[in-house]
Amino acid sequence: MSDDIKKIMFTVRNAPHGTIYVYEGLEVKLIMAAYDADISVVFMDDGVYALKQGQNTDELGIKGFEKTYGVFVDYEIENVFVDKQSMEDRGMTADDLLVIGEDEDTEAPIKPKVVDASEIAAMMAEQHNIMSF
């Protein structure tokens, strides 16, 4: 079946805190990565806030999950994208983005790739299924 691996995209469109969608959605990504599927993740709209480094949920009294994004590359979730316009609308730049793993050879930190809407649209058109959290 290796020649028939399905492409599945996750879109993350909600803010990381305030509702549980993004946190429980992260659990889905980590599980699905263990299966024979070609996974990609796109953060857009308020979802870009989930990728902001330096989050602290202590005063909210809820469990933070920002650090979990750091295992994405280890889990072979390497196709991670963030919408440029959504970041700009919220005053974020590429420097604000957290690290999702490191390069196997150089140990250089890997960050989500900033893409524009047309690139996202092109990727969406190739997907077998798209899930939103």
Binding site: V28, I31, Y35, A37, M131
Partner: peptide, 21 residues
């Protein structure tokens, strides 16, 4: 059951339709 079931649905179904915010 587990999220593996959701994974199999996403792989095997032609379309996955989500209801929620």
């Amino acid at each position: 059951s587990g999220l593996g079931q959701l994974t199999m649905m996403a792989i095997e179904a032609d379309r996955m339709v989500t209801f929620g915010d």
